[in-house]
Write a protein that binds this DNA or RNA. Structure first.
Lengths: 170, 170
DNA sequence: TAAACTAAGTCAATATGGCTGACATAAATA
DNA sequence: TATTTATGTCAGCCATATTGACTTAGTTTA
């Protein structure tokens, strides 16, 4: 009776993994949500969308708007509101591209870096606890499986992105 | 220079895991999103919120509204709109609780089951591919680490929930 | 060089999924 | 009986996303 709804053997483990991913992600994003809720900014509050921008710009200083759009997979109109707010409030600055002057290269300000740290600290703590408990082998295997969960045609791109060495500031 | 922004050793692996989780979840939820986009219902379209309800009611037939709220961690007003739509369109039915007549026990209809299958099929396929490639040991370790990513005080509850044996229909 | 394309920004309208607060009903319990 | 609990509902608000149309400036190409 336990397998009443399972289509093939192993489906129960698969379903459990699907639910675990849901709960893990739910708690994982709840950390920075709490930080943002406490953070009162002048022009409207900051949300998850701002967090994602802060994260990726912090990690990839000098990235273009187009690159950011590709990562977030949202429309430029959606990004516009968020990015405008972050720029207006001094978390992010833009520089015109030295090669291609149409591009706007994005950087965090010191204020932006501070927010990035505040947001990522609880998330890093969550993973650090995990990796310390599980050991290096399981941790490596965890990252490998996460990577293979990503659409096949984007894996190389993601690998390149996350392995990219940190560049210097503007 | 590679560790310029790292606070402690291992931070680079941690940051990579954080980004991988973001991308993995992004692609993971994109599967059912596509299914839902194709699914034209009479009174407004269905979204992720409906998917989550369909999933958990499908997995836990006879669950109460309170249990569902606890899992989703949203307000009852947020759930109300989604649940009302699913009931009105015949995906979900309610039964008054036999012990406690205030409760409304939730079940999927045949139509609801069909939608659940359509939504979960691509997600299951994604995980099946993964688990077949990685082998049982890595797969087990993956689930263990996902579980430990969840808030400590909720882990037992989640374990109980996902390990629960499938019950019979109303 | 003129035409075409590209990177980015903007305006407007709309959908979805959350939230708070207030209040209602019915059933269980102290 | 009085209170608490499970659920539902109304109203308004906010954050995040969408599509479509259009602009500006800079690059590329025919």
């Amino acid at each position: 009776m336990a397998d009443i709804n399972n289509k093939t053997p192993g489906d129960d483990e698969i379903r459990q993994a699907i639910e675990l991913l849901f709960f893990a992600y739910r708690d994982f994003v709840a950390d920075p949500d709490k930080v943002l809720a406490d953070y009162e900014s002048p022009k409207g509050s900051l949300g998850r969308a701002h967090h994602r921008v802060i994260h990726f710009v912090g990690r990839n200083p000098g990235m273009t708007v187009a690159e950011l759009l590709q990562i977030l997979q949202i429309t430029k109109q959606s990004l516009a509101r968020v990015l405008r707010q972050l720029i207006d409030e001094g978390f992010v600055v833009q520089e015109r591209g030295p090669e291609d002057a149409r591009q706007r290269l994005l950087y965090l300000t010191a204020k932006g870096e501070a927010l990035e740290t505040a947001l990522s600290t609880p998330q890093r703590a969550r993973f650090r606890r995990l990796f310390e408990k599980a050991g290096p082998e399981a941790s490596r295997s965890f990252r490998t499986l996460l990577l293979e969960l990503i659409n096949e045609d984007e894996r190389d791109q993601v690998l390149t992105l996350i392995a990219r060495k940190q560049q210097t500031s503007p």
